[in-house]
Amino acid sequence: MTEGTVDFTLGNETHQTWYKIVGDLKTSKSGCPLVVLHGGPGATHQYLVSIADLSTKYGIPVVFYDQLGNGNSTHLREKPKEFWTPQLFMDELENLVAKLGIAEKYDLLGHSWGGMLGSQFAATRRPKGLRRLILSGSPASMELWEETGKEYAKGLPPDVQAALKKHEDAGTTDDQEYKDAINVFYAKHLCRVQPMPEDVVESFKIMDEDPTVYMTMNGPSEFHITGSLRTWTVIPELHNIQVPTFLINGRYDGASDKAVLPFFKHIPHVKWYTLAESSHMGPWEEREKFMELVSEFLLW
């Protein structure tokens, strides 16, 4: 296991992107390392550390990193909202794979927002070194994600629905009552392993300490989107993804079938699997099955 940082220069400023490598980048049964893009935007790598199983069990080196503004990477609370864009994070990803010396050949696994980022990266940058792409729990547009979230919210107990509506209408989404109501939603549609794994809890705790990126790009919850990503879609560009792509979502996932379907319809070389007992955290909820599926795709 190796940890470190790479410089990420923007104009006259240089920031640091923190990374962790599990396994040996020079030795991979798949022929290249797997780079993992965490979600949020504004979460951290911790909630996805179970994916290290791909290294320890299947011989595929895994690169985790904290995206700029989050976790162990440089925090930039003072930046205006215009600073935080998908283009920024695509630039950071390009910089990371170049600095790690893997730009000529690598795979990507993006979870949630990470899959949104990965799909846009593959479709618009068309990196020559990208071999295969995995999109886990990721929607093709935020409109479809928000629609699903609102549909799921209607299935919550009436008092929980009332608390959500009260605070969203009043703009008091930082109130503890609202957070408690959100946790009821999360237990059904974020992670059905209860209590949640410590690494998942830790990641969200870190994000809560500096919610700059999440609040700017997303908003106060997974179904009340007020941030800059509200109108995000990659659907018009999906036909440009030429690498083999694997879609994974869960039966109870915020990335519902209708939110994932455009990927399946428009990416030329694609396969799709839905985990029967999972919501949004397949790498924990059905850990063994998730790793089997991903390893088969990468080693195929």
Rank of each mutant, 00 (worst) to 15 (best):
M1P: 11
G4R: 10
G4S: 09
T5L: 04
D7Q: 14
L10Y: 07
E13R: 11
T14Y: 08
T14I: 07
W18V: 03
W18P: 05
I21V: 15
D24I: 10
D24K: 12
L25A: 08
L25C: 11
L25Q: 11
S28Q: 09
C32E: 14
C32R: 11
L34I: 11
H38F: 07
H38D: 10
G39Q: 10
P41H: 13
G42T: 08
A43N: 12
A43K: 02
T44F: 09
T44K: 07
T44H: 10
H45E: 07
Q46Y: 14
V49T: 15
V49G: 02
S50M: 05
L54C: 08
Y58P: 01
P61L: 06
P61N: 08
V62N: 06
V63H: 06
Y65T: 05
Q67P: 03
G69H: 02
N72D: 10
S73H: 06
P80F: 03
E82N: 05
M90S: 09
E92I: 05
N95M: 05
A98D: 15
G101R: 12
I102L: 07
E104L: 05
Y106T: 12
D107S: 15
L109P: 10
L109A: 06
H111F: 12
H111W: 14
W113F: 15
G114H: 09
G114I: 09
G114T: 12
G114K: 04
G118C: 13
A122F: 14
A122V: 14
A122D: 15
A123D: 13
T124E: 15
L130W: 12
L130R: 06
L133G: 09
L135H: 09
S136Y: 12
S136T: 11
G137E: 13
S138P: 09
A140F: 11
A140C: 11
E143I: 06
W145Q: 00
G149Q: 02
E151Y: 05
E151G: 00
A153Q: 08
A153F: 04
G155I: 03
L156I: 06
L156C: 03
P157E: 04
P157T: 06
P158K: 11
D159C: 00
A163E: 09
H167S: 00
E168Q: 09
D169G: 01
G171D: 04
T173Q: 05
D174H: 08
D174K: 10
D174I: 02
E177M: 01
K179T: 03
V184T: 11
F185T: 09
F185Q: 01
F185W: 14
Y186N: 13
Y186C: 05
Y186A: 03
Y186D: 13
V193S: 01
V193C: 01
M196I: 07
D199P: 02
D199T: 14
V201H: 08
E202V: 02
S203F: 07
F204A: 01
K205N: 13
K205A: 08
I206P: 02
I206W: 07
D208S: 15
D208P: 00
M215S: 06
H239R: 07
N240V: 00
Y252L: 00
K258T: 04
A259R: 03
P262V: 04
K265L: 11
I267T: 08
P268S: 10
V270Y: 05
L275A: 12
A276D: 14
E277N: 15
E285W: 06
E285C: 06
E288Y: 09
K289T: 14
L293E: 10
V294L: 04
F297K: 04
